[in-house]
């Protein structure tokens, strides 16, 4: 069954959608959208380093995404506004990454594959990494769900309930780095943030509880992956962007529905 590249691609897309859904909800609730972008852009530097030192792309991307996420967490609230800081770090990391890739004269690499993903080239071992990473992220977030929610609502409330909100933030940061690293192959660094935010934002219009929002987001993400790949096959369009397009159309539909039902009540 896994011999078919379309099957592997679909499984890869669905795996990323499952990891991105609960994490994306927190990204939306905590207004960290740009944070996801910054981490993802940094990953291209990780790709360059992986190729230089002949590591797996996953390891390099994970390491740099992690360093980036930790740096941002550390620097937050020390002089610069968060969006300024992220703007500086995200685009510098991307620029350094692109420059670093150009030095790799010996290796002929297809940069587009990392910027926009190459989901149709997903191998069995990639699938293992993607589903392993996704399972780790989902397990982490499920385990700390209540604490993460409390810390999202109010830092002092977390302290008074006996746990450290900074540790919860670290768990999100870690999950984000893992998700970015596994999603590179599927949607590419430029569209990872879209997989995080769009399904979660679309789910908001249908959800009445935080848990249902995460589940609905997972459904929307998985559907986008399946339908996007199908559309890419039929219309011969790039796969990663097609997945994001389907998610965006769903977002638009649910938003209009949401507006209408809100207008009625």
């Amino acid at each position: 069954m896994l011999d078919d590249f379309m099957t592997r691609a679909t499984l890869a897309g669905v795996g990323v959608a499952f990891a991105a859904a609960p994490l994306g909800c927190f990204v939306v609730w905590r207004r960290m959208a740009y944070f996801g972008d910054a981490t993802a852009h940094a990953a291209i530097l990780g790709v360059a380093l992986s190729l230089t030192f002949q590591m797996s792309i996953f390891t390099g991307a994970l390491a740099v995404a992690l360093i980036m996420a930790l740096t941002v967490t550390l620097l937050a609230g020390r002089g610069y506004a968060m969006d300024t800081l992220l703007g500086v770090l995200a685009h510098s990391a991307l620029a350094f990454g692109l420059v670093a890739v150009s030095f790799l004269s010996g290796v002929r690499i297809d940069l587009m594959a990392y910027l926009f993903g190459d989901i149709l080239a997903v191998s069995r071992s990639d699938l293992l990494v993607i589903w392993g990473g996704a399972a780790l992220v989902v397990a982490l977030i499920t385990w700390r769900w209540s604490q993460l929610l409390t810390a999202t609502l109010n830092e002092e409330l977390a302290y008074a309930s006996g746990f450290d909100p900074k540790r919860e933030q670290l768990i999100l940061t870690l999950s984000l780095a893992v998700t970015v690293a596994v999603a590179i192959k599927v949607v590419g660094v430029l569209l990872i943030a879209a997989m995080l935010i769009i399904p979660a934002a679309a789910a908001r219009n249908l959800a009445r509880s935080p848990e249902s929002m995460a589940l609905i987001a997972a459904g929307i993400g998985a559907f986008s992956a399946v339908a996007g790949l199908r559309a890419a096959y039929v219309f011969d369009t790039p796969a990663g962007p097609s997945i994001v397009c389907v998610a965006a159309v769903l977002f638009a539909c649910f938003s209009i529905l949401g507006l209408k039902s809100r207008g009625r009540t």
């Binding site: 209540s146 609502l153 309930s161 979660a200 908001r204 959800a207």
Partner: peptide, 26 residues
């Protein structure tokens, strides 16, 4: 046992949460 009432608690409009769920959070 401490009951803490924070100064202000910002519930982002994108976060759907009922009073019951909120109270049973911690």
């Amino acid at each position: 046992k401490i009951g803490y009432v924070p100064q202000k608690l910002h519930v982002d409009p994108t976060l759907p949460i009922s009073v019951e769920r909120f109270m049973r959070l911690t």
